[in-house]
């Protein structure tokens, strides 16, 4: 698929925003002693940054819409549409995320704040899931429609949220060893998950080709004309135009930036707070940058079935020499 900047921003920024809130709420509600003494600073700073990230993501996403002024209508079909559900949970989540620091500010009873916090966590998870399902729902894009997509969205969101939270807390001079350890675990988990996803994507064999698309039983079918001398929506929206080699180098860059470098930085965080600060900030920046690339890649790797008709379907066999040998006799069109 063609990666769209606004959606990449939405997914990365809102994902981190949700993650920050989850960290905030979990610390505040479930391990309150952790932030005893710095509670207001933590709630306001993380609360604000959660909102900032989330709204930045939402704002970016409006650029994706052809008619943003009626974007609100997106909530109407929550019974059937994951996009609608995403919009609804996005609304609920941002309400909770906004309310949470407010409740603290107006000194509302902790119970109410906890309820809102838990609701916010639920909404954040629901939002992760709806965002993920929005893609996973498209059955015939196997790179999206698989069991890794939901964990991917949740874990990456949490990890990036955590990374930002950790950096902010470090910035304020609050360096929790526990948080660092959690980040290392999450980071490692993300790395494993993503590596696994890359391997999955590399080997995902979509056993279809233009023969099926046209229902013509001949090994040699070639597109001679798309019906126009030019590109159009259906030749542009569904493919990135990148070569396999380019995709591979993007994969490696994203793995390094999003996971490996942050992991190394977290593991190497020195004891001195001012130095730790720099490490944590660098780790968060690297992760966000890496995730922007990773999300872009998520689109790029999505191989839409309609590309079959335009000879742009990235047939797996063509990408994997081993497979193409094994599957000899069922040629797959190359772009």
């Amino acid at each position: 698929m063609r990666p769209e900047r606004s959606l990449v921003l939405l997914l990365v920024l809102a994902g981190a925003g949700q993650g920050i809130f989850v960290f905030l709420a979990v610390m505040d509600i479930f391990v309150p002693h952790l932030i005893d003494g710095v509670r207001p600073a933590v709630i306001y700073s993380l609360g604000a940054s959660s909102l900032a990230f989330t709204f930045a993501g939402m704002a970016a996403s409006l650029f994706h819409l052809g008619n943003p002024q009626r974007g609100w209508k997106a909530v109407l079909r929550w019974q059937s549409s994951w996009l609608s559900r995403e919009a609804v949970s996005m609304g609920l989540f941002s309400a909770a995320a906004a309310l949470y620091p407010l409740l603290y500010f107006i000194k509302a009873p902790g119970g109410i704040r906890a309820m809102v916090g838990i609701a916010g966590i639920c909404a954040a998870i629901a939002l992760y899931i709806s965002s993920a399902m929005l893609y996973a729902r498209i059955r015939f894009i196997r790179e999206w429609s698989n069991k890794l997509t939901i964990p991917n969205f949740i874990i990456f969101g949490l990890t990036s949220g955590g990374a930002v939270s950790y950096a902010i807390l470090c910035l304020m001079g609050i360096n929790y060893a526990a948080l660092r350890e959690i980040m290392i675990v999450l980071g490692a988990g993300s790395l494993i998950l993503k590596t696994f996803a890359f391997i999955f994507n590399k080997n995902v064999y979509v056993p279809t080709n233009i023969k099926n698309a046209l229902v013509m039983n001949d090994p040699n079918i070639r597109l001679m004309s798309t019906g126009t001398s030019y590109e159009h929506y259906n030749t542009k929206e569904y493919s990135s135009g990148l070569s396999d080699a380019q995709i591979r180098s993007i994969q490696i860059t994203s793995l390094f930036l999003a996971f490996i470098i942050p992991l190394i930085l977290w593991m190497a965080v020195p004891a001195r707070p001012d130095a730790a600060k720099i490490f944590a900030i660098l780790a968060a920046l690297s992760m966000i940058a890496g995730l922007l690339i990773e999300r872009r890649l998520f689109f790029i790797e999505g191989n839409h079935l309609q590309n079959l008709y335009y000879s742009r379907f990235r047939g797996n066999a063509a990408r994997n020499p081993l497979l193409s040998k094994a599957k000899k006799g069922t040629p797959v069109p190359v772009k």
Partner: peptide, 11 residues
């Protein structure tokens, strides 16, 4: 009613 989210075209 269409907000131009393009999701239908992906589906």
């Amino acid at each position: 009613d269409c907000i131009g989210c393009k999701y239908c075209s992906w589906a």
